[in-house]
Amino acid sequence: MKKKSTDPEKEMSFLDHLEELRWHLVRSTLAVLIVAILAFIFKRFIFDTLIFGPSRPEFATYSIFCDISRALGMDAFCFQEMPFKIQSRTMAGQFSAHMWTSIYAGIIIAFPYILYEFWKFISPGLNENERKSSRGFIVIASFLFFLGVLFGYYLITPLSINFLGSYQVSDEVINQFDLDSYISLVRTSVLACGIVFELPILMYILTKIGLVSPEILRKYRKFALIIVLVLSAVITPPDIVSQIIVAIPIVILYEVSIYISKVVIKNQEKELKKEERKKKKEERE
């Protein structure tokens, strides 16, 4: 195979790009596996503290909501015990849950490094101005992702568990949930919110490549609001309060995305004018 050139000015072939991408993927996978192994070892903390935390009445969210509801003259979220039990009904159920939860923990915790490897792959294709304007990409994207993860863990997850765990069609039916079903709810709530909170980053990229603009985002704001409400209904229990709690930050993120798109367009116009002045100056000389 042709040896990869170390000259930065020399264009890489398609196979060289594939080889470079392969090593970025390998390093990202190794980072996920290392964190997953650590999560596998510290299973007591991962499961007893994090995973099963929202299933306990003393969880922070329930305590705060209980205090707020009592201040309003109600007793919502004030309870001594969750009205359900978690069980494993298959031979490999607990081991499988342990393994996959460790892998997802690896993905979540190693997310900044995965972004770093992604950035290292695409950054050589950017010009100097684009690299400067995108300098804080990893930090901002990681911050938004972890903010979404915390939002999903401390708000969406306990709201969903409280609603679905206490819901009964009849007193004859006892709620005994499978371990995989419970973990799936926690995982989906956390990851969905983490991804949704990347909306400003997505809009930044789409604006940079010319697919969206502030005008388009404003024009379709009403449609976006409908999509937000549908999305909040999908990732939350079917009650109005939970949907509003989810919809508010998503709407805020959408408005922030409009502002970011506006800034990107202004910067592009400035760069274009700067290049035009430079060309005119060169023509005069």
Rank of each mutant, 00 (worst) to 15 (best):
K2F: 13
D7G: 04
P8V: 09
E9Y: 15
E9V: 08
E11F: 10
S13W: 07
R22T: 15
R22I: 11
H24W: 01
L25K: 02
R27Y: 13
V35D: 01
A36I: 03
I37E: 03
I37R: 03
F40P: 02
F42N: 15
D48M: 02
L50F: 03
F52V: 00
S55P: 02
S63A: 10
F65R: 15
R70G: 04
G73P: 06
D75C: 03
F79W: 05
Q80K: 09
P83F: 02
F84W: 04
K85S: 10
I86T: 01
F95S: 04
A97L: 01
M99C: 07
M99W: 09
Y104K: 01
G106E: 07
A110E: 11
Y116G: 15
W119S: 14
W119K: 15
S133E: 13
F137K: 07
I138V: 14
F143M: 12
G148N: 07
G152S: 13
L155S: 14
S166F: 10
Y167R: 04
S170C: 05
Q176R: 13
F177Q: 00
D180E: 10
S181P: 00
S184C: 00
L191Y: 13
L191P: 04
A192H: 02
G194M: 12
G194P: 11
G194R: 02
L206P: 05
T207N: 03
L211G: 02
V212N: 12
P214I: 06
A224N: 09
S232R: 08
S232V: 04
S232E: 07
A233V: 05
A233E: 08
P237R: 05
V241Q: 09
S242D: 02
A247W: 01
I248Q: 06
V251D: 04
I252G: 10
S257P: 15
S257W: 09
I258Y: 12
K262M: 14
V264N: 10
I265A: 08
N267K: 12
R277M: 14
E283R: 11
E285S: 12
